[in-house]
């Protein structure tokens, strides 16, 4: 009776906990992702009129009066469920679908932060936008520490000389 209980406890601790963690990670992770995507879509809708280009020189019809460097960045982490799925996926190779929306979300968030910064400071457009990704190292050698990805978006924001300088 006593040993049966201990065996049960051991079983729960060995398999139950990781399974519980996986489920918690899955549900909360999915909720966070949905909420974030909704926020990104709303804010992208708000900023759709704001010109952001990757050209390294200004389009001819832009007449700038002042400019500055603007940037936006975000560090995101991968949830436990996604890491487990990706780990399984790397056994057989192929596309890791769980990571793709994660990186996409981070990149769009970084872009939005850059745009919001520029708008807040009264700039009218951004050109020469560059995106950079850097991986933050695990804080522990065994690979179990914190792993994150930083997305950085930066570009040159300009104020137009007159509101009608840009013909669109």
């Amino acid at each position: 009776m006593e040993s049966g209980f201990l065996q049960m406890l051991e079983l729960i601790l060995n398999f139950g906990l990781p399974l519980l963690l996986l489920m918690v990670a899955y549900f909360i992770g999915a909720w966070i992702e949905r909420r974030h995507l909704r926020s990104i879509r709303n804010r992208e809708g708000d900023n759709v009129q704001f010109p952001v280009v990757t050209f390294d020189t200004m389009p001819d019809d832009w007449i700038a009066s002042s400019s500055t460097l603007v940037s936006g960045s975000v560090v995101i982490s991968l949830d436990y469920f996604k890491r487990v799925i990706a780990g399984l996926r790397s056994l057989v190779g192929g596309r890791i679908k769980t990571y793709e929306p994660l990186l996409d979300r981070a990149r769009r968030e970084a872009m939005l932060r850059m745009i919001e910064r520029a708008r807040l400071d009264g700039y009218d457009a951004i050109f020469n936008v560059r995106l950079e990704t850097s991986r933050l190292a695990n804080s522990r050698g065994d690979g179990k520490g914190i792993a994150g990805v930083e997305m950085l978006a930066f570009g040159t924001a300009v104020k137009f000389a007159s509101r009608f300088a840009r013909t669109s």
Partner: peptide, 13 residues
């Protein structure tokens, strides 16, 4: 803790 559920690591940002 954030690493379990995913999302932004605000402190790192």
């Amino acid at each position: 803790l954030k690493n379990i559920v995913g999302g932004e690591l605000v402190g790192y940002t």
